[in-house]
Design a protein around this nucleic acid. Sequence first.
RNA 1: GCGCCUGUAGCUCAAUGGAUAGAGCAACUGCCUUCUAAGCAGUGGGCUGGGGGUUCGAGUCCCUCCAGGCGCGCCA
Length: 554
Amino acid sequence: MKKRELESIIQNILDRLTEEGRINGPARVMLERPPREELGDFSTNVAMLLSRSEQRPPRQIAELIVPSIDALECVARSTVEGPGFINIHLKKECWYEVLKEILEKKHSYGDCPHVGEGKKVQVEFVSANPTGPLHIGHGRGAAVGDALSNILKAAGYDVTREYYINDVGRQMTILGHSLYIRYLELLGKDVTLPGDHYQGDYIRHIAEEFLKRYGREHAQTPFDECRELFIEFAKDSILSGIKKDLEDFGVRFDHWFSEKTLFERNLVEATIEELKGRGVVYEKDGALWFRTTMFGDDKDRVLIKNDGSTTYFASDVAYHHEKLRRGFHTIVDVWGADHHGYAPRMRALLSALGEDPERLRIILIQLVSLKRGGKPVAMSTRKAEFVTLREVMDEVGRDAARFIFLTRKADAHLEFDLELAKSQAPENPVYYVQYCHARIMSILEFARERGITVPDTPSVELLGRLELKEELDLIKHLSRLDEVVETAATSLEPHRVTFYLRELAALFHPYYNTHRVVSEDKTLSSARLILCRATAEVVRKGLGLLGVDAPSRM
RNA sequence: GCGCCUGUAGCUCAAUGGAUAGAGCAACUGCCUUCUAAGCAGUGGGCUGGGGGUUCGAGUCCCUCCAGGCGCGCCA
């Protein structure tokens, strides 16, 4: 029995009672889980919600509803408790169908296509400037954005993953010039890298590549005559490094959107014209302003500076206009938390264009504080002392890194301890869940060797052998996967899946420890193997949503 | 000064406005001749930063104060 299913059954009961005039209704039935298991499998507060309009105490209303619920096929009993909760205990036979469903649907179990209904959603994440390698903070953004994309897809959305490349502007010039200086340095010239340039060693490495490709060809060329060459070379080199890092991290984007193309296609200009047409821009002090204060922003924002160049914000405006034009129902932007101040002006843009600002959903990724054996690791982007995603991946492994990034809400600070993440000790959370899967695979292998079969379409009699409380608890938890996917998708909170998986593993491990799956009792073994298979299926599915492998052996 | 975020067990964090607020780690005590001990069983741990309000009901919503973080450029 699935929550959603029972919900609609009980909704029908209330609609009928309303029709019959026994209550004034209408009421929306929402099922929830009681805090303690003695209180039943599900509960509803509908009587309490009706109390006001009915002018009666909630318990009285509840008593009126309960008989109809009690009469349902799958209900063992339902009771009124506390201030007016209706608690529902289901018959255990109703839970077995969950196992059948899992074995039938396999990898698609847990999907809930009715949530997204195929609506187009774009998730833009990472979008780090192509001026240096990805650091650990980008890694968190990548893990969150990618897992969220997986979850949205499972929830029935048509998802596009996009990376926005800031490949124009002053910092690109500085990047190119940094490479130029390092190149001259390699040629033995007496040059120094200005303080506002990129200091990292990676520029030196790029300079070596440049030297290999072009030799001494540009030893005498003034920067102004070869800037594009240096900029492009540095950018391409860094970008391909970023792509490689992300690929190794298990993240693949559908689109790499270049800011430069916005200008090439005149989209920045066109968007500004559109805003002009809507009467939300004005000139002041020689600059062109977007009146974002009309839509809840603190102050108006400049689009075109008094020197005639456009601002970074102007590009963003054009980019988001373009996102809307591409027909995305919802646009998800994953930003570093330090950019939170940009939210009001971006929402203002949607409002100004006559769109519902709710179509833009912003996820803020809080800082990762890196530790090593409990001691903080200093990070400063300026000095290029930061720890790169590559280093973290190499040291702790992809799975551990991704899983740990997803153990917290995105907007909560995350403490990432390198020692802990790479340790193969119990305190490492990723192994707890993966081990559950590996363990089950091993049990299935063991059973196979003994010739014990696991039917694909088990009979109810066979499943009826699963009578232990631990077994029913496991099944009930397995039944919740689609609820978790739905909530994670609508709230844009992938960490919910992580918590769900930990709970699932926490039900399986003790079960394994106290009861033998494979025993002399052939039918019982068979039934338990089905439960194991279903559990493994759900673990694999859940880890897959997080982008983490489910190993068969550990 | 203004705005946003955070404040929950010793530490790191959970908890669609629901009932007696939960995990993990750390601490302590046990369990491998068995389908994987990367596991399990047990023990302690709390005025959810303070105060007010909204309502049947608040960790959750509103106001206020306190503490911490971040943001407040014709920078990118």
